[in-house]
Design a protein around this nucleic acid. Structure first.
Lengths: 419, 419
DNA sequence: TCATTTAATTCAACCACTGAACAAATAGCG
DNA sequence: CGCTATTTGTTCAGTGGTTGAATTAAATGA
């Protein structure tokens, strides 16, 4: 079996673009029913699923039988019902079936987590370490050890790891190679090759590579998508050392033609502004990046580790520090200008502040909203919501693990065939 | 039968998200085979289609039989073949089946055109008239007369109009109401109601409304998509009096959550720049809009009708007029800054200059490319192409008509059921 | 106790695809 | 000219999966 390592597919279309064969029918309906079970607020009965989907109850029963046999779904306790009639048997996603392993490498920590089909985080571990002075190979070695712990925890809970995803703060190509991770100091790091020496994290399942490497901001947006209520469209802004964003359009992550979408940190705010590392001038990162905010306050990254800086700034702002308040106001205004561009372009109704921006949201939001209201053409008819991410700093790892189980929910036939 | 008028669906997904019933199988395969026939560079045989799609020849034959019976496909003359074997019978889209009616209302002209299944423009007519002083009702009255002529031309060629689409330079809501068309001076114009008095342009077919109202820039991008070679992702910039854009992602127009995407004219270039009509400051339109370019040259819109201004400017630039060259350079640079933002956000590989920008492209391109190279993070690995639109000023009307026939190609079952 | 109501299963019918066999139409070759 | 090889397209029995109606299951309420 050839083990292929690759980046998350550039655009995974849920529906098969190819031939629709006899068996595709069952495949599609398995996905349809499982998707409804996953999206339902409370365990639905077979009858309810039939009514929702338009399939007959006979078909739903047959499909559910397959799902239960494959350990993807289990029956919940009968719900007490109001009125007459045989009580419904509720269906829920299995808590002891396949699970996803999520990994994250960031500037000053490594993280691993395990998420089950229902989206519950069943294991989570973080290893703090400044990874900038460490070689990529050593960093990945540490990651493998963390992953082994996560795998043991999954086994102990009766979960089967069905795949893994790794988030990296940088640009990843289709082969899983990290082309550029500026804040980590990585350039052209062949993650798959470096991991090849270690025992693979999981086995290849149904043609899906055992490990998918993806941009951290993309995975964080996916985490937010699955944590939120239902699909939709939003921009998820991850304010780490750099500024990245994940774009969710109609419930699907948009990755761009090469998978490099969401680089809002380098959207020009003032074309003649201060020069940026990237070669441009006046990029958003120069106004709202963590280092920009810190230096406006008279601090540098050397004074504060990157992961504690946001909370420290929030404390100072809470205490009424005028310099900090002013710096956050400026950063928020720059974010607002950029978000206005994005909303004018994409007509989004929601923007989510994640990563390091989450604790700073109370101070960033007002200037953001002011700029958005002023600059978005359709703001009068269609207000834009700016909200705080529901997942905290763990968003990328949880999103990575979630992307694995979501793939199973979107295409259960692959998992069932594996049995 | 209730006649419903509506805006183009916000996000028409090709594949059914709902239940996959017995008959859906055939529906999907009809669409699959017809789509391949439409996309093929030369008339494919049934055997070739079977090989391409993965269906058996038997199934392809059955599907093709349905398509031929429904006048969507006809057999071409047998192709001369190299080597032994029974000669293949090539399949082509029918030139005498359903066709689409495309309409456009713009500042100083009305247009109508008829496009057949194969994408050929079978009729095209333009009526020049300054529509700013005319009431919306009167303008639509003129449009209805133009449409009647187009319908007669279609009838004369044996074509059946299967629907119509109307492009308007403004924001359109789901009900087909024009919320705002600044350059036309329209505000909250209920196009469907105003057209209700006139005989409908076509009958409702299979639940699809007879007339779809959409943004002109969106339709122009669709026209460019269908005129080009295959799907892909690009930004199509329509430089009319205002600046609009259509966003095509993976071969599908992205309309945004309310259908108001692509308003790049109001993306801020310099947040503290000159005030804009929209209430913001330093919008792209202030630097690269037609009026901005003209006033930089010392002219006003009163001197030149909007539709001749671009060609006039091109002549002056060709002659080496330094003021004009400078104005175009500035406009191109502003466009480049904005496009860099878009590419950083969406990771597109192609930008198309359409509408009034097409004749000016030789002068706009160099400064655009310079800004893009400087400001796009991934420019070093993934060059961005800036090309001129292949359709001329007719893009919106042709795109509108094309959207009608494309809908049939994407979902032929609806058309077949109508018979 | 029994009618009523809702849930889930069973089963014959049917629809569309599959795979193999077959008919059709041509080129190449002796 | 006839024969074989080759490729196209059709026919037909077989099969998988959905359908719809009938049936069984399990509760409530009068």
């Amino acid at each position: 079996m050839t083990v292929v390592w690759q980046c998350q597919g550039v655009n995974p279309s849920a529906a098969p673009a190819g031939a629709v064969r006899q068996g595709s029918l069952r495949e599609l309906n398995l996905a349809l029913v499982l998707g409804r079970i996953a999206a339902a607020p409370r365990p639905p009965s077979r009858a309810a699923l039939a009514a929702e989907t338009g399939l007959t109850r006979a078909t739903v029963s047959a499909v559910v039988e397959d799902l239960v046999a494959g350990r993807l779904v289990t029956e919940a306790e009968p719900q007490p019902r109001a009125g007459a009639g045989r009580p419904a048997r509720g269906l829920v996603l299995a808590g002891d079936g396949p699970a996803g392993l999520g990994l994250e490498i960031n500037v000053d920590y490594l993280a691993a987590c395990v998420v089950d089909l229902a989206g519950e985080v069943r294991h989570h571990s973080v290893h703090r370490a400044d990874l900038r002075p460490v070689s990529p190979a050593d960093a990945l070695g540490q990651l493998v050890r963390l992953a082994a712990g996560a795998r043991a925890a999954a086994d102990a809970q009766g979960l089967t790891l069905a795949g893994a995803a790794l988030g990296v703060p940088g640009l990843v190509d289709e082969a899983g190679r990290v082309r550029l991770a500026p804040n980590l100091g990585w350039r052209d790091v062949p993650v798959p090759e470096l991991l090849a020496g270690h025992p693979p994290l999981t086995e290849t399942v149904d043609g899906v590579p055992p490990l998918v490497v993806d941009n951290e901001a993309n995975l964080a947006a996916l985490g937010e998508l699955h944590a939120g209520d239902g699909p939709g469209s939003f921009l998820h802004i991850s304010g780490e050392v750099g500024i990245g964003a994940g774009i969710v359009l109609d419930g699907a992550l948009y990755r761009g033609t090469r998978g490099w979408s969401g680089e809002i940190g380098h959207i020009p705010v003032r074309p003649d502004g201060p020069p940026c590392r990237c070669g441009g001038r006046g990029c958003l990162e120069q106004y709202a990046g963590q280092e920009a905010i810190l230096s406006a306050v008279g601090l540098t990254g050397a004074d504060l580790p990157a992961d504690t800086a946001p909370n420290r700034l929030a404390e100072l702002a809470e205490a009424g520090d005028a310099t900090v308040l002013n710096a956050l106001h400026e950063a928020g205004a720059a974010l607002g200008v950029t978000v206005a561009s994005v909303v004018n372009l994409l007509d989004l109704d929601t923007v989510v502040l994640g990563g390091g921006y989450a604790p700073l949201a109370p101070w960033l939001r007002p200037p953001m909203l002011a700029e958005i209201d002023r600059r978005v053409l359709t703001a009068a008819w269609a207000p834009v919501t700016v909200r705080v991410a529901t997942l905290g700093a763990t968003a990328a790892a949880v999103g990575a693990a979630g992307s694995v189980v979501r793939r199973i929910i979107a295409r259960p036939a692959g998992w069932l065939a594996r049995l």
